Amino acid sequence: MVEVGVHEAKTTLSALLRRVATGEEITISSGGRPVARLVPVQRGAERVLGRDRGVFELPDDFDSPLPDDVLDDFES
Rank of each mutant, 00 (worst) to 15 (best):
E25W: 05
V4L: 08
P40W: 09
G50E: 03
A15G: 10
V2R: 08
R43N: 06
E75S: 08
D72K: 07
G54R: 11
A36T: 07
D68P: 11
V6G: 00
E8N: 04
T27S: 11
D61Q: 02
R53H: 03
S76K: 14
G44K: 11
A21F: 03
S76Q: 14
D60Q: 10
F56L: 14
E75F: 15
A21G: 13
G23P: 05
R53W: 05
A36N: 09
L17E: 15
S14L: 11
L58V: 12
D69T: 11
T12H: 10
E57Y: 02
E25L: 10
L71A: 14
E75R: 13
V35Q: 02
I26T: 04
R37N: 10
A36F: 05
V39G: 03
P65E: 07
V6A: 08
E46Y: 15
G32H: 05
L66N: 09
S64R: 05
V39P: 08
V4H: 08
R33P: 07
E8K: 00
L49M: 09
S29T: 10
S64L: 06
T27M: 08
T22G: 15
L13R: 02
V41T: 12
L17D: 05
R18I: 15
L16C: 07
A15S: 12
E25P: 03
L16K: 03
L16M: 13
V39H: 13
V35P: 06
V41H: 03
S76E: 14
S30D: 13
G50A: 09
P40S: 09
V2G: 00
L38H: 00
F62E: 00
V39S: 13
D73M: 12
L71Q: 12
Q42L: 15
L49V: 14
R43E: 08
P34D: 11
R53M: 03
E25G: 06
L71D: 11
L17R: 15
R43H: 11
E24L: 02
R18F: 15
G31R: 06
V55H: 05
R47V: 13
A45G: 13
P40N: 08
G23D: 01
M1D: 08
D63G: 02
E57S: 14
G54Q: 04
G50Y: 05
G50D: 02
P34T: 07
K10N: 08
G54A: 06
T12G: 06
E3I: 14
F62A: 12
D60T: 07
G31I: 02
P40T: 03
